[in-house]
């Protein structure tokens, strides 16, 4: 599933670098270094970032600017990482956060 904006009259949306690979819950997806992790996830059709502590309800992108924490996931073993403002690095390992996901070493 590709949700990239591939054509635009105003913006230059052509990707000038090659994509890298990151893993999300074991699934390998394409991403571009430097873009927010959340952008790569949305492109792959992944809309759920975490589940709440008490009622285990899904949460996903809400504010997009690092203010609401709905997009928090476990990134390279560190929980509560706001994926909307964290840039992609090749080889990143991302997991859907379950509640508080207290640190996975």
């Amino acid at each position: 599933m590709c949700m990239r904006v591939e054509n635009h009259v105003i913006l230059d949306v052509e990707k000038k670098v090659s994509p890298v690979e990151i893993t999300v819950d074991g699934l390998v997806i394409e991403a571009y270094e430097g873009e927010p992790v959340l952008g790569a996830l949305l492109n792959a059709g992944i809309k759920i970032n975490r589940y709440t502590v008490k009622r285990h309800e899904p949460r996903g992108l809400f504010c997009g600017i690092g203010q609401c924490t709905d997009c928090a996931m476990v990134v390279d073993g560190v929980p509560n990482v706001r994926t909307c403002i964290t840039p992609v690095k090749a080889g990143m390992v991302i997991k859907t956060q379950d509640g508080l996901s207290k640190g996975e070493a």
């Binding site: 949700m3 990239r4 904006v5 635009h8 913006l11 949306v13 873009e35 927010p36 959340l38 952008g39 949305l42 492109n43 809309k47 759920i48 970032n49 309800e57 899904p58 949460r59 996903g60 992108l61 809400f62 504010c63 997009g64 600017i65 709905d70 909307c84």
Partner: peptide, 22 residues
């Protein structure tokens, strides 16, 4: 709170800055 409900600004950031459709 359903994933897919977001601020308009978030959608705008996604398309105009990150070039990905929400």
């Amino acid at each position: 709170t359903t994933p897919g409900v977001m601020g308009a600004g978030a959608a705008q950031t996604m398309v105009n800055v990150n070039h990905v459709k929400p």
